[in-house]
């Protein structure tokens, strides 16, 4: 075990740790391969009606952000859905895999571009991002992908999954067979 505390200029760190920076975990295709290995998927996008949106919001208690449902039917049975939730400030895209009975098979976060924890409220912290672009990344030799000290809640993601489970019950279940 070895550790040391160093101090680095904020300009470089801002890009790595702040909203100007996104950690990309998986592409949609990679998430499909991870969640349904070896299966083929068929896109079956839907547009929710006004009534369906109301019914989903009523049953899940979660606000529906968009009527467009990005959904794929899986050859081996089951569904693959890509959706997003609003984190503290940014959209967090995620993929949900449902088995042929509509039970959760897996959740993968696709991208994370949230500012971490409380420092977003700190005006000094926010100031760092003004006028920054991707080229500023070069100021720091290697990017900083992890932050410690501000536990992130995943409640918005579990709420999003809850909403999609209701969406499955009300919209996909009858139509998918």
């Amino acid at each position: 075990m070895n550790s040391r505390l160093i101090f680095l200029p904020l300009a470089g760190i801002a890009i790595a740790g702040g909203p100007a920076y996104a950690t990309v975990y998986l592409s949609v295709e990679q998430a499909q391969a991870v969640l349904f290995p070896g299966a083929t998927v068929q896109p079956q996008p839907r547009t929710l009606t006004e009534e369906q949106v109301k019914a989903i919001e009523h049953a899940s208690g979660v606000h529906v952000l968009t009527k467009q449902l990005k959904v794929w039917r899986v050859s081996a049975g089951g569904w693959f859905i890509v959706d997003e939730v609003v984190g503290k400030h940014e959209y967090i895209p995620f993929a949900l895999a449902l088995d042929d009975k509509g039970a959760v098979k897996g959740v993968e976060i696709l991208e994370y571009r949230e500012a971490y924890g409380g420092q977003i409220r700190d005006p000094e912290w926010q100031k760092q991002f003004l006028g920054k672009d991707a080229s500023a990344k070069l100021q720091l030799g290697k990017s900083i992908r992890n932050i410690s000290g501000a536990t992130l809640s995943c409640k918005h993601i579990t709420d999003g999954v809850e909403r999609l489970l209701v969406t499955y019950e009300l919209v996909l279940k009858q139509s998918g067979r």
């Binding site: 101090f7 971490y116 000290g149």
Partner: peptide
């Protein structure tokens, strides 16, 4: 990155 607001232009990194 240690998530503590920095007063200076240097941020603590472990």
């Amino acid at each position: 990155r240690l998530a503590t607001p920095s007063q200076s232009d240097l941020a603590p990194v472990l």
